[in-house]
Design a protein around this nucleic acid. Structure first.
Lengths: 256, 256
DNA sequence: CGTTTATTTGAAAACGCTCAAGCTCTGTGG
DNA sequence: CCACAGAGCTTGAGCGTTTTCAAATAAACG
Protein backbone atom coordinates (compact mmCIF):
# COMPACT_ATOMS: atom_id res chain seq x y z
CA UNK A 1 0.00 0.00 0.00
CA UNK A 2 1.91 2.96 -1.24
CA UNK A 3 -0.33 5.82 -2.24
CA UNK A 4 0.25 8.97 -4.19
CA UNK A 5 0.12 10.81 -0.92
CA UNK A 6 3.85 10.41 -0.78
CA UNK A 7 3.97 13.76 -2.52
CA UNK A 8 2.20 15.28 0.44
CA UNK A 9 4.67 13.70 2.79
CA UNK A 10 7.55 14.90 0.71
CA UNK A 11 6.43 18.42 1.48
CA UNK A 12 6.79 17.84 5.18
CA UNK A 13 9.85 19.73 6.26
CA UNK A 14 11.12 16.55 7.81
CA UNK A 15 11.40 14.90 4.41
CA UNK A 16 11.85 17.85 2.10
CA UNK A 17 15.59 17.59 1.68
CA UNK A 18 16.26 13.88 1.91
CA UNK A 19 17.66 12.07 -1.09
CA UNK A 20 15.33 10.32 -3.47
CA UNK A 21 16.86 7.07 -2.39
CA UNK A 22 16.25 7.69 1.29
CA UNK A 23 12.75 8.82 0.59
CA UNK A 24 11.99 5.68 -1.34
CA UNK A 25 13.47 3.55 1.43
CA UNK A 26 11.34 5.35 3.98
CA UNK A 27 8.11 5.10 2.08
CA UNK A 28 8.24 1.81 0.23
CA UNK A 29 7.23 -0.31 3.19
CA UNK A 30 5.14 2.38 4.79
CA UNK A 31 1.41 2.64 4.49
CA UNK A 32 -1.36 5.11 4.73
CA UNK A 33 -4.37 4.18 6.75
CA UNK A 34 -7.62 5.90 7.49
CA UNK A 35 -8.92 5.47 11.01
CA UNK A 36 -12.33 6.33 12.39
CA UNK A 37 -12.69 8.58 15.37
CA UNK A 38 -11.73 7.27 18.79
CA UNK A 39 -9.21 4.66 17.73
CA UNK A 40 -6.17 4.15 19.92
CA UNK A 41 -3.20 4.14 17.58
CA UNK A 42 -0.45 3.51 20.09
CA UNK A 43 -0.31 2.87 23.79
CA UNK A 44 2.30 4.17 26.15
CA UNK A 45 4.82 1.57 27.20
CA UNK A 46 4.69 -0.29 23.93
CA UNK A 47 7.90 -0.43 21.92
CA UNK A 48 8.08 2.15 19.16
CA UNK A 49 7.34 0.37 15.91
CA UNK A 50 6.29 3.15 13.58
CA UNK A 51 6.79 6.80 13.05
CA UNK A 52 3.34 8.29 12.58
CA UNK A 53 2.53 11.17 10.27
CA UNK A 54 -0.87 12.83 10.56
CA UNK A 55 -2.08 13.73 7.08
CA UNK A 56 -5.69 14.39 7.98
CA UNK A 57 -7.89 14.60 11.05
CA UNK A 58 -6.53 15.06 14.54
CA UNK A 59 -4.73 12.88 17.03
CA UNK A 60 -4.70 13.26 20.79
CA UNK A 61 -1.53 12.36 22.63
CA UNK A 62 -2.33 11.32 26.17
CA UNK A 63 -0.94 9.46 29.12
CA UNK A 64 -2.18 8.25 32.42
CA UNK A 65 -1.82 6.34 35.62
CA UNK A 66 -4.29 3.83 37.04
CA UNK A 67 -6.63 6.57 38.13
CA UNK A 68 -5.75 9.68 36.18
CA UNK A 69 -5.30 10.67 32.58
CA UNK A 70 -4.14 13.77 30.82
CA UNK A 71 -3.85 15.07 27.28
CA UNK A 72 -0.32 16.09 26.41
CA UNK A 73 -0.79 17.33 22.88
CA UNK A 74 -3.05 17.38 19.89
CA UNK A 75 -1.49 16.77 16.50
CA UNK A 76 -3.07 18.07 13.34
CA UNK A 77 -1.89 17.87 9.72
CA UNK A 78 0.82 17.87 8.82
CA UNK A 79 2.49 16.65 11.96
CA UNK A 80 4.62 13.84 13.20
CA UNK A 81 4.39 12.07 16.49
CA UNK A 82 6.51 9.91 18.78
CA UNK A 83 9.66 10.69 16.84
CA UNK A 84 11.77 10.65 19.99
CA UNK A 85 10.70 7.15 20.99
CA UNK A 86 11.40 5.90 17.49
CA UNK A 87 14.88 7.36 17.48
CA UNK A 88 15.79 6.20 20.95
CA UNK A 89 14.35 2.81 20.15
CA UNK A 90 12.40 3.03 23.33
CA UNK A 91 8.88 2.52 24.51
CA UNK A 92 6.32 5.22 23.91
CA UNK A 93 5.80 7.64 26.76
CA UNK A 94 2.43 8.62 25.38
CA UNK A 95 -0.62 6.99 23.92
CA UNK A 96 -2.41 8.31 20.88
CA UNK A 97 -6.01 8.22 19.78
CA UNK A 98 -7.84 9.80 16.91
CA UNK A 99 -10.15 12.67 17.78
CA UNK A 100 -11.66 12.63 14.30
CA UNK A 101 -11.50 10.31 11.35
CA UNK A 102 -7.85 10.59 10.49
CA UNK A 103 -5.37 9.69 7.78
CA UNK A 104 -2.20 8.35 9.28
CA UNK A 105 0.95 7.51 7.38
CA UNK A 106 3.08 4.97 9.16
CA UNK A 107 6.79 4.45 8.61
CA UNK A 108 8.56 1.49 10.20
CA UNK A 109 10.80 2.67 13.01
CA UNK A 110 13.85 0.80 11.81
CA UNK A 111 13.60 2.49 8.42
CA UNK A 112 13.65 5.84 10.17
CA UNK A 113 16.66 4.92 12.24
CA UNK A 114 18.46 3.54 9.23
CA UNK A 115 17.70 6.61 7.15
CA UNK A 116 18.99 8.80 9.92
CA UNK A 117 22.25 6.88 9.91
CA UNK A 118 22.74 7.06 6.18
CA UNK A 119 21.26 10.36 5.06
CA UNK A 120 22.79 13.42 6.66
CA UNK A 121 20.07 15.71 5.36
CA UNK A 122 17.50 13.54 7.06
CA UNK A 123 19.47 13.55 10.29
CA UNK A 124 19.57 17.33 10.20
CA UNK A 125 15.85 17.57 9.53
CA UNK A 126 15.21 15.26 12.46
CA UNK A 127 17.35 17.45 14.67
CA UNK A 128 15.29 20.47 13.80
CA UNK A 129 12.00 18.68 14.26
CA UNK A 130 13.09 17.27 17.60
CA UNK A 131 14.42 20.57 18.85
CA UNK A 132 11.13 22.18 17.95
CA UNK A 133 9.01 19.57 19.71
CA UNK A 134 11.28 19.74 22.69
CA UNK A 135 10.90 23.47 22.96
CA UNK A 136 7.14 23.21 22.64
CA UNK A 137 7.08 20.78 25.53
CA UNK A 138 9.20 23.06 27.66
CA UNK A 139 6.72 25.84 26.98
CA UNK A 140 3.92 23.59 28.12
CA UNK A 141 5.81 22.73 31.26
CA UNK A 142 6.44 26.38 31.98
CA UNK A 143 2.78 27.11 31.46
CA UNK A 144 1.80 24.39 33.90
CA UNK A 145 4.20 25.55 36.58
CA UNK A 146 3.84 29.29 36.22
CA UNK A 147 0.17 29.82 35.51
CA UNK A 148 -3.27 29.09 36.84
CA UNK A 149 -5.74 27.13 34.76
CA UNK A 150 -7.72 30.21 33.83
CA UNK A 151 -4.56 31.95 32.65
CA UNK A 152 -3.68 29.00 30.48
CA UNK A 153 -7.13 29.10 28.96
CA UNK A 154 -6.90 32.82 28.27
CA UNK A 155 -3.59 32.38 26.50
CA UNK A 156 -4.87 29.36 24.63
CA UNK A 157 -7.73 31.48 23.33
CA UNK A 158 -5.37 34.20 22.14
CA UNK A 159 -3.26 31.69 20.33
CA UNK A 160 -6.21 29.86 18.83
CA UNK A 161 -7.51 33.17 17.55
CA UNK A 162 -4.20 33.87 15.85
CA UNK A 163 -4.16 30.44 14.25
CA UNK A 164 -7.70 30.90 13.02
CA UNK A 165 -7.02 34.19 11.36
CA UNK A 166 -7.22 36.70 14.17
CA UNK A 167 -10.84 37.64 13.58
CA UNK A 168 -11.68 37.40 17.24
CA UNK A 169 -14.01 34.51 16.47
CA UNK A 170 -12.51 31.38 17.93
CA UNK A 171 -13.94 27.97 17.24
CA UNK A 172 -13.08 25.24 19.71
CA UNK A 173 -12.37 22.37 17.40
CA UNK A 174 -12.49 19.60 19.96
CA UNK A 175 -14.56 18.46 22.86
CA UNK A 176 -14.28 20.78 25.79
CA UNK A 177 -13.22 18.00 28.06
CA UNK A 178 -10.30 17.31 25.74
CA UNK A 179 -9.35 20.95 25.84
CA UNK A 180 -9.64 20.84 29.61
CA UNK A 181 -7.30 17.90 29.80
CA UNK A 182 -4.91 19.57 27.36
CA UNK A 183 -4.80 22.61 29.60
CA UNK A 184 -4.34 20.51 32.71
CA UNK A 185 -7.70 20.95 34.37
CA UNK A 186 -10.98 19.18 34.86
CA UNK A 187 -13.95 19.81 32.56
CA UNK A 188 -15.79 21.42 35.46
CA UNK A 189 -12.92 23.74 36.03
CA UNK A 190 -12.70 24.67 32.38
CA UNK A 191 -16.33 25.57 32.44
CA UNK A 192 -15.75 27.84 35.40
CA UNK A 193 -12.68 29.32 33.78
CA UNK A 194 -14.76 30.30 30.77
CA UNK A 195 -17.24 31.94 33.12
CA UNK A 196 -14.45 33.86 34.76
CA UNK A 197 -13.17 35.09 31.42
CA UNK A 198 -16.57 36.49 30.57
CA UNK A 199 -15.58 39.42 32.72
CA UNK A 200 -12.28 39.70 30.86
CA UNK A 201 -13.39 40.43 27.38
CA UNK A 202 -14.89 37.24 25.95
CA UNK A 203 -18.31 35.90 25.10
CA UNK A 204 -18.99 32.24 24.69
CA UNK A 205 -21.69 30.32 22.89
CA UNK A 206 -21.23 26.59 22.74
CA UNK A 207 -18.01 25.88 20.89
CA UNK A 208 -17.71 29.43 19.63
CA UNK A 209 -15.86 32.02 21.60
CA UNK A 210 -15.74 35.67 20.69
CA UNK A 211 -12.94 37.83 21.93
CA UNK A 212 -14.92 41.02 22.29
CA UNK A 213 -12.28 43.11 23.93
CA UNK A 214 -8.86 41.75 23.05
CA UNK A 215 -7.04 44.34 25.13
CA UNK A 216 -8.81 43.25 28.29
CA UNK A 217 -8.21 39.57 27.63
CA UNK A 218 -4.55 40.24 26.93
CA UNK A 219 -4.33 42.27 30.09
CA UNK A 220 -5.57 39.27 32.00
CA UNK A 221 -3.63 36.61 30.10
CA UNK A 222 -0.28 38.39 30.05
CA UNK A 223 0.92 36.31 27.10
CA UNK A 224 4.61 35.57 26.94
CA UNK A 225 6.35 34.57 23.71
CA UNK A 226 8.52 32.23 25.71
CA UNK A 227 5.46 30.28 26.77
CA UNK A 228 2.80 30.91 24.18
CA UNK A 229 4.34 31.44 20.79
CA UNK A 230 4.18 28.35 18.66
CA UNK A 231 7.59 27.07 17.76
CA UNK A 232 8.19 28.50 14.36
CA UNK A 233 8.40 25.71 11.78
CA UNK A 234 11.01 27.78 9.98
CA UNK A 235 13.19 29.35 12.61
CA UNK A 236 14.89 32.63 11.86
CA UNK A 237 17.92 32.19 9.66
CA UNK A 238 19.65 35.24 11.03
CA UNK A 239 20.06 34.47 14.70
CA UNK A 240 16.89 35.58 16.38
CA UNK A 241 17.08 38.63 18.54
CA UNK A 242 15.00 41.30 20.23
CA UNK A 243 11.80 39.94 21.59
CA UNK A 244 10.75 41.01 25.03
CA UNK A 245 13.39 42.13 27.43
CA UNK A 246 14.03 39.54 30.08
CA UNK A 247 13.86 41.02 33.50
CA UNK A 248 14.41 38.40 36.09
CA UNK A 249 15.76 39.21 39.47
CA UNK A 250 18.71 36.95 39.99
CA UNK A 251 17.20 35.36 43.01
CA UNK A 252 13.69 36.60 42.93
CA UNK A 253 10.80 34.86 44.51
CA UNK A 254 10.25 31.25 43.78
CA UNK A 255 7.37 29.02 44.10
CA UNK A 256 4.58 28.21 41.79
CA UNK B 1 41.97 29.25 26.56
CA UNK B 2 41.86 25.65 25.62
CA UNK B 3 42.46 23.35 28.53
CA UNK B 4 43.33 19.70 28.79
CA UNK B 5 39.79 19.12 29.92
CA UNK B 6 38.96 18.51 26.31
CA UNK B 7 39.65 14.88 27.10
CA UNK B 8 36.84 14.96 29.60
CA UNK B 9 34.54 16.48 27.06
CA UNK B 10 35.54 13.93 24.49
CA UNK B 11 34.10 11.30 26.79
CA UNK B 12 30.72 12.95 26.69
CA UNK B 13 28.51 10.75 24.58
CA UNK B 14 27.67 13.79 22.53
CA UNK B 15 31.25 14.10 21.32
CA UNK B 16 32.50 10.55 21.59
CA UNK B 17 32.18 9.63 17.95
CA UNK B 18 32.81 12.87 16.12
CA UNK B 19 35.81 13.15 13.86
CA UNK B 20 39.03 14.58 15.20
CA UNK B 21 38.59 17.48 12.84
CA UNK B 22 35.10 18.29 14.04
CA UNK B 23 36.18 17.98 17.61
CA UNK B 24 39.01 20.41 17.06
CA UNK B 25 36.71 22.84 15.33
CA UNK B 26 34.27 22.63 18.21
CA UNK B 27 36.81 23.10 20.93
CA UNK B 28 39.43 25.44 19.52
CA UNK B 29 37.45 28.61 20.14
CA UNK B 30 35.66 27.26 23.18
CA UNK B 31 36.67 27.95 26.71
CA UNK B 32 36.38 26.56 30.16
CA UNK B 33 35.39 28.86 32.92
CA UNK B 34 34.92 28.42 36.64
CA UNK B 35 32.02 30.32 38.11
CA UNK B 36 31.23 30.93 41.77
CA UNK B 37 27.90 29.97 43.19
CA UNK B 38 24.83 32.00 42.25
CA UNK B 39 26.00 33.34 38.91
CA UNK B 40 23.44 33.69 36.15
CA UNK B 41 24.99 32.11 33.08
CA UNK B 42 22.24 32.75 30.59
CA UNK B 43 18.91 34.50 30.67
CA UNK B 44 15.78 33.40 28.94
CA UNK B 45 14.96 35.40 25.85
CA UNK B 46 18.57 36.04 24.98
CA UNK B 47 19.80 34.65 21.68
CA UNK B 48 21.61 31.35 22.02
CA UNK B 49 25.31 32.09 21.77
CA UNK B 50 26.97 29.12 23.38
CA UNK B 51 26.35 25.50 24.05
CA UNK B 52 27.15 24.94 27.71
CA UNK B 53 28.67 21.79 29.14
CA UNK B 54 28.68 21.31 32.89
CA UNK B 55 31.96 19.69 33.91
CA UNK B 56 31.70 20.37 37.63
CA UNK B 57 29.25 21.78 40.13
CA UNK B 58 25.56 22.15 39.42
CA UNK B 59 23.45 24.45 37.30
CA UNK B 60 19.81 25.32 37.84
CA UNK B 61 17.64 25.87 34.79
CA UNK B 62 14.78 28.19 35.63
CA UNK B 63 12.23 30.46 34.06
CA UNK B 64 9.75 32.97 35.20
CA UNK B 65 7.19 35.66 34.62
CA UNK B 66 7.11 39.05 36.27
CA UNK B 67 5.84 37.60 39.49
CA UNK B 68 6.62 33.91 39.46
CA UNK B 69 9.62 31.71 38.94
CA UNK B 70 10.16 28.00 38.66
CA UNK B 71 13.05 25.59 38.41
CA UNK B 72 12.82 23.42 35.34
CA UNK B 73 15.87 21.25 35.75
CA UNK B 74 19.15 20.85 37.52
CA UNK B 75 22.17 19.86 35.46
CA UNK B 76 25.13 18.08 36.98
CA UNK B 77 28.30 16.77 35.39
CA UNK B 78 28.58 15.74 32.74
CA UNK B 79 25.61 17.39 31.16
CA UNK B 80 24.76 19.77 28.37
CA UNK B 81 22.20 22.50 28.42
CA UNK B 82 20.21 24.63 25.99
CA UNK B 83 21.12 22.43 23.07
CA UNK B 84 17.74 22.92 21.45
CA UNK B 85 17.99 26.71 21.42
CA UNK B 86 21.47 26.50 19.93
CA UNK B 87 20.33 24.23 17.15
CA UNK B 88 17.19 26.16 16.32
CA UNK B 89 19.19 29.35 16.45
CA UNK B 90 16.56 30.74 18.74
CA UNK B 91 16.37 32.55 22.03
CA UNK B 92 16.73 30.61 25.24
CA UNK B 93 13.52 29.48 26.86
CA UNK B 94 15.25 29.06 30.17
CA UNK B 95 17.71 30.88 32.34
CA UNK B 96 20.59 29.20 34.10
CA UNK B 97 22.41 29.92 37.31
CA UNK B 98 25.07 28.05 39.21
CA UNK B 99 23.97 26.36 42.41
CA UNK B 100 27.55 25.66 43.40
CA UNK B 101 30.93 26.75 42.15
CA UNK B 102 30.87 25.21 38.70
CA UNK B 103 33.12 24.47 35.76
CA UNK B 104 31.40 25.31 32.52
CA UNK B 105 32.73 24.60 29.08
CA UNK B 106 31.29 26.89 26.46
CA UNK B 107 31.16 26.18 22.75
CA UNK B 108 30.10 28.89 20.30
CA UNK B 109 26.66 28.13 18.91
CA UNK B 110 27.65 28.60 15.31
CA UNK B 111 30.42 26.04 15.68
CA UNK B 112 27.86 23.57 16.93
CA UNK B 113 25.50 24.25 14.06
CA UNK B 114 28.31 24.02 11.55
CA UNK B 115 29.59 20.78 13.02
CA UNK B 116 26.12 19.35 12.85
CA UNK B 117 25.94 20.20 9.17
CA UNK B 118 29.30 18.68 8.33
CA UNK B 119 29.75 15.74 10.66
CA UNK B 120 27.10 13.07 10.41
CA UNK B 121 28.27 11.32 13.55
CA UNK B 122 27.81 14.54 15.47
CA UNK B 123 24.36 15.03 14.00
CA UNK B 124 23.40 11.56 15.14
CA UNK B 125 24.76 12.14 18.61
CA UNK B 126 22.78 15.34 18.82
CA UNK B 127 19.65 13.50 17.78
CA UNK B 128 20.10 11.04 20.61
CA UNK B 129 20.85 13.73 23.16
CA UNK B 130 17.88 15.79 22.07
CA UNK B 131 15.53 12.85 22.05
CA UNK B 132 16.64 12.00 25.55
CA UNK B 133 16.15 15.50 26.90
CA UNK B 134 12.82 15.70 25.18
CA UNK B 135 11.64 12.53 26.80
CA UNK B 136 12.80 13.69 30.19
CA UNK B 137 10.79 16.84 29.80
CA UNK B 138 7.70 14.89 28.80
CA UNK B 139 8.11 12.86 31.95
CA UNK B 140 8.26 16.03 34.00
CA UNK B 141 5.16 17.32 32.29
CA UNK B 142 3.34 14.09 32.98
CA UNK B 143 4.40 14.25 36.60
CA UNK B 144 3.08 17.78 36.92
CA UNK B 145 -0.25 16.97 35.36
CA UNK B 146 -0.88 13.58 36.87
CA UNK B 147 0.42 13.87 40.41
CA UNK B 148 0.10 15.90 43.57
CA UNK B 149 3.11 17.64 44.99
CA UNK B 150 3.57 15.09 47.74
CA UNK B 151 3.50 12.28 45.20
CA UNK B 152 6.16 13.99 43.16
CA UNK B 153 8.31 14.32 46.24
CA UNK B 154 7.86 10.67 47.17
CA UNK B 155 8.92 9.60 43.69
CA UNK B 156 11.79 12.04 43.69
CA UNK B 157 13.04 10.45 46.91
CA UNK B 158 12.87 6.97 45.44
CA UNK B 159 14.81 8.09 42.43
CA UNK B 160 17.39 10.02 44.42
CA UNK B 161 17.92 6.94 46.55
CA UNK B 162 18.59 4.87 43.46
CA UNK B 163 21.03 7.43 42.12
CA UNK B 164 22.84 7.55 45.43
CA UNK B 165 23.32 3.82 45.68
CA UNK B 166 20.03 2.56 46.98
CA UNK B 167 21.10 2.47 50.62
CA UNK B 168 17.92 4.12 51.78
CA UNK B 169 19.96 7.10 52.94
CA UNK B 170 19.14 10.03 50.70
CA UNK B 171 21.07 13.25 50.86
CA UNK B 172 19.33 16.32 49.47
CA UNK B 173 22.13 17.97 47.59
CA UNK B 174 20.54 21.34 47.10
CA UNK B 175 18.61 23.90 49.03
CA UNK B 176 15.17 22.70 49.86
CA UNK B 177 13.59 25.69 48.26
CA UNK B 178 15.30 24.77 45.02
CA UNK B 179 13.98 21.26 45.31
CA UNK B 180 10.54 22.68 46.01
CA UNK B 181 10.68 24.78 42.88
CA UNK B 182 11.97 21.83 40.88
CA UNK B 183 9.01 19.81 42.04
CA UNK B 184 6.60 22.61 41.32
CA UNK B 185 5.64 23.68 44.80
CA UNK B 186 6.45 26.31 47.40
CA UNK B 187 9.05 25.75 50.10
CA UNK B 188 6.30 25.72 52.71
CA UNK B 189 4.45 23.09 50.82
CA UNK B 190 7.56 20.95 50.44
CA UNK B 191 8.07 21.11 54.16
CA UNK B 192 4.54 19.88 54.73
CA UNK B 193 4.95 17.21 52.10
CA UNK B 194 7.94 15.86 54.00
CA UNK B 195 5.85 15.82 57.14
CA UNK B 196 3.15 13.90 55.35
CA UNK B 197 5.65 11.33 54.14
CA UNK B 198 6.79 10.69 57.69
CA UNK B 199 3.74 8.50 57.97
CA UNK B 200 4.67 6.75 54.73
CA UNK B 201 7.97 5.21 55.61
CA UNK B 202 10.53 8.02 55.79
CA UNK B 203 12.44 9.85 58.48
CA UNK B 204 14.01 13.21 57.88
CA UNK B 205 16.80 15.08 59.58
CA UNK B 206 17.92 18.25 57.93
CA UNK B 207 19.12 17.44 54.46
CA UNK B 208 19.25 13.72 55.16
CA UNK B 209 16.27 11.54 54.50
CA UNK B 210 16.06 7.92 55.44
CA UNK B 211 13.70 5.64 53.65
CA UNK B 212 12.90 3.39 56.60
CA UNK B 213 10.19 1.34 55.00
CA UNK B 214 10.66 1.37 51.24
CA UNK B 215 7.60 -0.77 50.64
CA UNK B 216 5.34 1.75 52.32
CA UNK B 217 6.86 4.70 50.49
CA UNK B 218 6.53 2.87 47.19
CA UNK B 219 2.95 2.03 48.02
CA UNK B 220 2.28 5.72 48.46
CA UNK B 221 4.38 6.98 45.53
CA UNK B 222 3.22 4.44 42.96
CA UNK B 223 6.29 5.02 40.83
CA UNK B 224 5.86 4.63 37.09
CA UNK B 225 8.82 3.98 34.79
CA UNK B 226 7.14 6.17 32.20
CA UNK B 227 7.34 9.12 34.56
CA UNK B 228 10.15 8.41 36.96
CA UNK B 229 12.86 6.40 35.29
CA UNK B 230 15.76 8.52 34.18
CA UNK B 231 16.23 8.46 30.46
CA UNK B 232 18.90 5.87 29.98
CA UNK B 233 22.03 7.46 28.52
CA UNK B 234 22.55 4.29 26.55
CA UNK B 235 19.16 3.14 25.37
CA UNK B 236 18.57 -0.53 24.80
CA UNK B 237 20.06 -1.73 21.55
CA UNK B 238 17.52 -4.49 21.16
CA UNK B 239 14.27 -2.61 20.94
CA UNK B 240 13.07 -2.29 24.49
CA UNK B 241 10.11 -4.37 25.47
CA UNK B 242 8.21 -5.68 28.46
CA UNK B 243 8.01 -3.14 31.20
CA UNK B 244 4.73 -2.67 32.92
CA UNK B 245 1.63 -3.56 31.00
CA UNK B 246 -0.22 -0.49 29.92
CA UNK B 247 -3.81 -0.65 30.97
CA UNK B 248 -5.61 2.41 29.87
CA UNK B 249 -9.30 2.41 29.27
CA UNK B 250 -9.80 3.77 25.80
CA UNK B 251 -11.82 6.65 27.05
CA UNK B 252 -11.32 6.40 30.75
CA UNK B 253 -11.69 9.25 33.14
CA UNK B 254 -9.80 12.42 32.54
CA UNK B 255 -9.29 15.05 35.03
CA UNK B 256 -6.45 16.96 36.59
C1' DC C 1 -38.86 11.96 20.29
C1' DG C 2 -36.23 9.38 23.65
C1' DT C 3 -31.58 7.99 24.90
C1' DT C 4 -27.05 8.85 25.44
C1' DT C 5 -23.33 11.90 26.06
C1' DA C 6 -21.37 16.32 27.02
C1' DT C 7 -21.51 20.44 29.59
C1' DT C 8 -22.73 23.32 33.31
C1' DT C 9 -23.80 24.33 38.08
C1' DG C 10 -23.65 23.57 43.06
C1' DA C 11 -21.62 22.16 47.41
C1' DA C 12 -18.04 20.12 50.02
C1' DA C 13 -13.43 18.67 50.54
C1' DA C 14 -8.59 18.49 49.24
C1' DC C 15 -4.83 20.90 47.78
C1' DG C 16 -1.74 24.57 47.37
C1' DC C 17 -0.54 29.43 48.15
C1' DT C 18 0.39 33.60 50.99
C1' DC C 19 1.55 35.87 54.98
C1' DA C 20 3.51 35.89 59.39
C1' DA C 21 5.98 34.19 63.13
C1' DG C 22 9.16 31.12 65.25
C1' DC C 23 12.88 28.02 64.88
C1' DT C 24 17.46 26.14 63.35
C1' DC C 25 21.71 26.38 61.46
C1' DT C 26 25.79 28.84 60.04
C1' DG C 27 29.18 32.07 59.94
C1' DT C 28 31.10 36.38 61.92
C1' DG C 29 32.83 39.50 65.09
C1' DG C 30 33.51 40.56 69.68
C1' DC D 1 33.92 30.73 73.18
C1' DC D 2 29.81 33.18 72.99
C1' DA D 3 26.47 36.39 71.13
C1' DC D 4 24.29 37.78 67.29
C1' DA D 5 22.86 38.50 62.59
C1' DG D 6 21.31 36.45 58.48
C1' DA D 7 19.57 32.89 55.82
C1' DG D 8 16.95 28.92 55.36
C1' DC D 9 13.50 26.02 57.08
C1' DT D 10 9.31 24.93 59.60
C1' DT D 11 4.83 25.77 61.49
C1' DG D 12 0.35 27.93 61.85
C1' DA D 13 -3.68 30.39 60.13
C1' DG D 14 -6.40 32.01 56.52
C1' DC D 15 -7.65 32.04 51.94
C1' DG D 16 -8.06 31.07 47.06
C1' DT D 17 -7.93 27.48 43.67
C1' DT D 18 -8.90 23.05 42.05
C1' DT D 19 -10.85 18.66 42.48
C1' DT D 20 -14.51 15.56 43.58
C1' DC D 21 -19.05 14.13 43.82
C1' DA D 22 -23.74 14.92 42.64
C1' DA D 23 -27.32 16.73 40.07
C1' DA D 24 -29.36 19.55 36.52
C1' DT D 25 -29.27 21.24 31.94
C1' DA D 26 -28.08 21.16 27.18
C1' DA D 27 -26.66 19.01 23.04
C1' DA D 28 -26.02 15.10 19.90
C1' DC D 29 -27.60 11.00 17.79
C1' DG D 30 -30.26 7.52 16.26
Amino acid sequence: MRPENTAQIRQLELFAKVSEETFRALTETSFLQRFPRGVVLIRENEPADFLHVVLGGAVEMFAGTETRETTLDIIRPIGVFILAAVLNDEVYLQSARTLEPSDIFMIPAQKVRFAMETDAAFARAIVMELARSYRRTIKDLKGMKLRTGTERLANWLLRADKEQGGSGQVEIRMEKRTLASRLGMTPENLSRAFSTLKSHGIEIDGSKVEIVEPAILIEFARPDPLVDDPEDPFPAADGGTNRKDAQIADRGQRGQ
